[in-house]
């Protein structure tokens, strides 16, 4: 598994609410119009789905990757 630390630019409360309900994303903090979260991924096939899901959210402006942690027990 990979755990990707991300910064998400948003516009509006609704976007925050929609993002909070996504199963692959956990929000850890908020500052102005930016959310700090972690996306949990098995592989990049999922990453594409993640990007698509995010893009469809009204008020989602952009995403930046900041960190990545690899689970050592991952043998894939």
């Amino acid at each position: 598994m990979f755990y990707i630390g991300v910064l998400i630019d948003i516009e509006g409360e609704e976007a925050e609410k929609a993002l909070s309900s996504l199963s692959f994303l956990k929000i850890y903090g908020k500052k102005e119009n930016q959310l700090l979260g972690v996306i949990e991924l098995k592989d990049l096939q999922e990453w594409k789905a993640v990007e698509e899901a995010l893009t469809e959210i009204k008020g989602f402006l952009g995403l930046s990757i900041l960190s990545s942690f690899q689970d050592n027990s991952d043998t894939s």
Partner: peptide
């Protein structure tokens, strides 16, 4: 590991967690 990723990301952009 999730917290590790979050804390590390926070330190990069100056978020306090």
């Amino acid at each position: 590991l999730k917290w590790s990723a979050a804390l590390t990301a926070a330190s990069v952009v100056g978020f306090e967690l």
